[in-house]
């Protein structure tokens, strides 16, 4: 299955970016093969508003079934949910570690946004 992780760099040893909408990169990790692709988020980094929504749309369009990140705001949450992407906030460490945490069931899926807007 494909998992998107917000990251501060373009490889698996980069730290998880705690911001969802304004993350530097999305790493799309295939958890079966361990292969990944990096997708920058430049467009949304500089967006005046709606960064969370647009980042969520990008993640849905990448075909991710889950997203691992730090904080998700309400609008991004709604968008990810509509795209049937499971949301795991509070991921930390490197991307590789976050994927391991998730694989071993140590990340809890969120039932609602864990921060107010503007984080998103």
């Amino acid at each position: 299955m494909k998992v998107a992780v917000t990251a501060q760099g373009a490889d698996l040893d980069s730290p998880v970016d705690p911001r969802f909408g304004r993350a530097k990169y999305f790493l799309l990790v295939d958890t079966d093969s361990g292969e990944f692709t990096a997708h920058d988020n430049v467009q949304n980094l500089n967006a005046l508003q709606g960064a969370g929504i647009q980042a969520a749309q990008a993640v849905v369009n990448l075909g991710a079934q889950a997203v691992l990140t730090g904080n998700v705001g309400p609008k991004a949450f709604t968008t990810l949910q509509a795209g049937q992407v499971a949301i795991y906030p509070h991921a930390s460490g490197t991307v590789r570690q976050a994927v391991e945490q998730w694989r071993s069931g140590n990340l809890q899926p969120a039932a609602k946004a864990n921060v107010e807007g503007h984080w998103s």
Partner: peptide
């Protein structure tokens, strides 16, 4: 331009 619309799967969301 205001990032107010998301088209995800079978839904078009307007914020």
């Amino acid at each position: 331009r205001f990032g107010a619309i998301a088209c995800v799967g079978q839904q078009t969301l307007i914020f």
